Simulated assay, not measured.
Amino acid sequence: MTERSADGRANRPPDIHAVARHAGVSHQTVSRVLNESPRVRPATRERVREAMRVLGYTPNVAARTLITRRSRTLGLVVLNEELYGPASALRHVEQDSRSAGYGLRILNLPPMARSTLREAVESLRQQLVDAVIVVDPHPEDQPLLGPLPSDLPLVTVGGLRSAGVPSVSYDSGPGVRQAVQYLLGLGHRTVHHIAGPAGWAEADIRRSVWERTLEQAGREVPAPIEGDWTARSGHAAGLALAGRDDVTAVFCANDQMALGLFHALAERGVRTPEDVSVVGFDDVPDAAYYRPALTTLRQDFAELGRHTVRLALRQIETGTREGVESVTLAPPSLILRASTAPPA
């Protein structure tokens, strides 16, 4: 609230002196609370924060940034936000950033030229963000990140690891292996694959593990059909597979392509799972409501958000990327639903 004079006229908004009077502390103590100084007892810190809430005190962020050299803002570069994986990463990083008391500045970029990622990071740095997080960088872009100044807190999420850059990585391989082995265990002679676009780290990993699992089982490795993560590309692949007697099981590199496959098979009179079993990847919120409900692999994006923000805050605290260990997430879980069955 705004302080008022004795005659009821509005005064200027409350400052730290008003907060100090309300909390019964010195203005130096209020300043220490604002600057996150450890030299304040928890009970006093909470009393000051309560006074700020009651008075409606808003810190002068610009002034505090000049003093502390911290903006309490994280910068986030997201590639292909329309895809479920990057969008989920963004959502959970944003939630955990806010829980830690940090705002977020987001640059949402499409697949880009190699120079653009460097420009995006530099743009966020000029906006005085305290750390930069890059979600799912393309493998060709990642060598550009390592040479950035070591005093710039930086985290990559997904993709390949870059030397000298802390990262949070998916471990999708064990999940893909489990999915392919599950389909073989149902009695399918082999498993076809609708892959993500070549050159994307996760697409390449899922394709190579699918291939290696079939080879280790002594099964034929069919030629994969490359998609682009969209349901449209899954539909096109499904039209190519529908009606082939040798196709009884398909592993899709994501759920959107599995949805397109469902529609193509249905259009050609091919039943799922009676004629063709289908497994996806991601467990999008609608996967349980596909027709039939989709068997798929689920990743823990909440865990991803926690680790990503923790790595960023660790670098902010220490002032360097050195000694900050990268994290590999737990493998995805296989969620069994109605889209898989033994072959007819």
Results as ranks from 00 to 15, higher is better:
173 G>F: 04
303 E>S: 15
282 D>V: 09
127 Q>H: 14
95 Q>L: 12
228 D>I: 13
184 L>T: 12
41 R>F: 04
176 V>Y: 00
326 S>D: 12
33 V>F: 01
193 H>F: 07
19 V>F: 06
226 E>Q: 14
196 G>N: 05
252 C>A: 13
290 Y>D: 01
233 S>V: 14
142 Q>I: 15
245 D>E: 15
342 P>F: 00
92 H>M: 10
83 L>W: 12
258 A>Y: 00
125 R>N: 06
37 S>W: 05
82 E>L: 13
180 V>F: 01
191 V>P: 01
85 G>R: 05
309 V>N: 01
52 M>Q: 11
201 A>V: 11
101 G>F: 01
226 E>C: 12
160 L>P: 12
223 A>H: 08
122 E>L: 11
261 L>I: 09
63 A>H: 01
60 N>K: 01
199 G>Q: 03
103 G>S: 09
294 L>D: 00
182 Y>W: 11
36 E>G: 14
215 E>I: 01
160 L>Y: 13
78 V>P: 04
110 P>E: 13
288 A>E: 11
179 A>C: 08
274 E>M: 10
150 S>I: 13
319 G>W: 07
323 G>A: 03
215 E>P: 00
182 Y>N: 04
183 L>I: 10
76 L>W: 11
310 R>W: 06
320 T>S: 12
116 T>W: 02
46 E>D: 14
3 E>M: 15
76 L>K: 12
143 P>A: 13
68 T>G: 14
37 S>E: 04
333 S>V: 14
253 A>T: 03
95 Q>M: 12
92 H>A: 06
9 R>C: 10
298 R>Y: 06
142 Q>S: 15
291 R>V: 15
243 G>C: 04
185 G>A: 06
174 P>K: 09
53 R>P: 01
66 L>T: 14
120 A>Y: 04
163 A>S: 12
236 A>D: 12
343 P>S: 00
94 E>C: 06
95 Q>E: 10
116 T>V: 12
102 Y>L: 07
135 V>Y: 12
304 L>P: 03
335 I>R: 05
336 L>Q: 03
224 P>I: 04
344 A>L: 08
183 L>F: 04
12 R>W: 02
220 E>Y: 00
94 E>G: 07
24 G>W: 00
299 Q>D: 09
176 V>H: 01
231 A>L: 04
240 A>P: 02
274 E>P: 02
269 G>H: 10
106 I>E: 06
247 V>D: 07
43 A>H: 11
307 H>G: 09
70 R>N: 08
10 A>R: 13
196 G>M: 10
9 R>S: 15
323 G>F: 01
194 I>A: 01
198 A>V: 07
151 D>Q: 08
122 E>V: 06
99 S>R: 15
3 E>A: 12
232 R>N: 11
30 V>K: 00
187 G>S: 09
334 L>V: 07
98 R>G: 05
58 T>V: 15
322 E>S: 10
339 S>I: 00
45 R>T: 05
115 S>Y: 04
108 N>S: 15
116 T>D: 14
337 R>H: 07
36 E>T: 14
264 A>C: 10
267 E>P: 03
209 V>E: 12
118 R>K: 11
218 G>I: 03
44 T>H: 03
161 R>E: 15
38 P>W: 09
167 S>A: 15
118 R>H: 13
127 Q>V: 07
33 V>A: 02
104 L>Q: 09
204 D>E: 09
170 Y>I: 10
183 L>N: 04
160 L>M: 13
73 T>E: 02
50 E>K: 02
184 L>I: 08
